[in-house]
């Protein structure tokens, strides 16, 4: 036991110090209830209703489903861009503002994160309707003269999902920005860089890895979202996750459901692999 803690450089073998046994219970759970069922689902996509790739042909060959793919990427992309544009400045301020203020802002962020997902979505459903508070306020302020369509369309989905994703951009970025030495920026300023140059040439590049990691995470999470698009989107905003659920729950078509799930799975895993490869904070070890 004592030895194994100090010698990590030696040859690696399975079960060398018995610590593999600690992992075993969790591994059993993951294999039986995660790896196996997902593989079984994917099998069904090529076996039902008959062996072959016809499910994939139908899925990738129909304009209806292609529109769903498009929608999925549009929504995920839009949510990511908006979250980053709004999240970056907020994280920036949080990284440098006095503690007592940043603590308050952080508390608000965490409260919003921990509030029940359905409660938040329900609130947006009511807030965004044509006769909702937002439209009523804008109307009475004279900013608009007829109600905006804010829900059951792309706008509604984007607002609802950005709300959910913002913390996932802001929180990791704060740490990244805090770890940048202000002296570097002072040096840049001394060398004659103006504010814009300081930002574009120093601050942004230094925080880019953290920003990219956060953006990628938001993108991946958005791709697979089900509840919020289902409640805030319109009939023409269906996303991939909703399609999977619809195939299985309403159409009882496991073959197509499995095929759509595989598409979603592959996109997600590829992006996850990219994230692990380029942005893994642990990779140095």
């Amino acid at each position: 036991m004592v030895m194994s803690a100090t010698t990590d450089g030696g040859q690696r073998t399975l079960r060398r110090d018995g610590s593999f046994g600690y992992v075993a219970p969790g591994l059993l759970l993951i294999v039986f209830f995660f790896v196996v069922p997902v593989l079984m689902l994917l099998m069904r996509s090529v076996l039902e209703p008959a062996p072959g790739l016809q499910n994939y042909v139908e899925l990738l060959g129909s304009t209806t489903y292609l529109r769903v793919f498009m929608n999925t990427f549009i929504v995920a992309g839009l949510v990511t861009v908006v979250s980053v544009l709004i999240g970056y400045p907020v994280a920036w301020l949080l990284a440098i503002m006095p503690d007592r203020w940043s603590r308050l802002v952080l508390a608000i962020i965490i409260l919003s994160m921990w509030t029940n997902l359905l409660a938040r979505t329900y609130a947006w459903m009511v807030l965004l309707q044509r006769t909702g508070v937002i439209n009523k306020t804008l109307l009475s302020l004279g900013i608009i003269d007829k109600p905006l369509s804010l829900v059951n369309n792309l706008v509604g989905v984007t607002i609802g999902m950005t709300y959910i994703m913002l913390p996932f951009v802001i929180l990791p970025l704060i740490g990244v920005l805090k770890s940048i030495d202000p002296a570097i920026l002072r040096a840049a300023a001394l060398c004659g860089a103006n504010k814009r140059q300081c930002f574009a040439r120093v601050l942004l590049p230094l925080s880019l890895p953290g920003l990219a990691a956060g953006a990628l995470m938001v993108f991946v999470m958005s791709l697979g979202y089900y509840v919020t698009p289902a409640l805030l989107g319109g009939t023409s905003n269906m996303m991939l996750a909703e399609l999977v659920a619809q195939f299985v729950q309403s159409l009882v078509n496991w073959g197509m459901g499995g095929a759509a799930a595989l598409v979603l799975l592959i996109v997600t895993l590829v992006l996850y692999a990219i994230q692990l490869k380029f942005f893994n904070p642990n990779r140095a070890r």
């Binding site: 619809q246 309403s250 009882v252």
Partner: peptide
């Protein structure tokens, strides 16, 4: 009532 669910449970 959900006909998909209904069919799924019967099958």
């Amino acid at each position: 009532t959900d006909y998909g669910k209904l069919k799924a449970m019967i099958e």
